[in-house]
């Protein structure tokens, strides 16, 4: 099966790669673009480790064909931060609230949180939990993750000006 040329826009940067038509977005992100922050988990759309944003919507990159991600704005965990060395408030809150253990689910969790907070800056605890229904964590136990998203939401609403 011949490869096809695919133009992707990831974290604002344009890429052109030759991919197998059966190549999923997560495979291309990790193996061709070397953006290994996005994880491969269940590959059946249950665990959310591969979550990225496509045109602002959270999707499972393991169930997205790279050929179908063309001409769309893709955001991965590498592009969430405000700059190269400045973390996003969601990332900071995950660290400060101890919402990370092994870290495998974290990139997906952060992107699901961003998907939620971009639409709804004042989510209730229930809304946060519903927004994370497609992200499984097997070690921290969710409570700290939910707390981190609450803290991040507050911070995003009232950014503290730095000197």
């Amino acid at each position: 099966m011949p490869k096809v040329n695919v133009k992707l826009k990831v974290n604002g940067d344009p890429y052109e790669v030759a991919v197998n038509p059966s190549g999923t977005l997560v495979e291309v992100l990790r193996e061709d673009l070397h953006l290994t922050g996005t994880k491969i988990g269940c590959q059946t759309g249950d665990c959310g480790a591969c979550t990225v944003l496509v045109n602002g919507k959270s999707v499972c990159s393991c169930l997205t064909l790279a050929v179908e991600a063309q001409e769309k704005e893709i955001i991965t965990i590498e592009g969430v931060g405000l700059s190269y060395d400045k973390l996003h408030p969601i990332q900071e809150a995950f660290i400060n609230e101890g919402a990370i253990q092994c870290g495998y689910c974290t990139p997906g969790m952060v992107l699901s949180a961003k998907h939620l907070l971009d639409k709804n800056p004042n989510p209730s605890e229930l809304q946060i939990r519903q927004a994370l229904s497609g992200n499984l964590c097997r070690c921290t136990g969710y409570a700290r993750i939910v707390k981190a998203i609450e803290v991040a939401g507050e911070k995003m609403k009232n950014p503290v000006k730095e000197k």
Binding site: G45, D46, V59, C60, L63, T64, S112, H115, S133, G134
Partner: peptide, 9 residues
């Protein structure tokens, strides 16, 4: 139906 991500897709 399913999860946020699956509903988006």
């Amino acid at each position: 139906t399913a999860t946020v991500q699956i509903r988006n897709m």
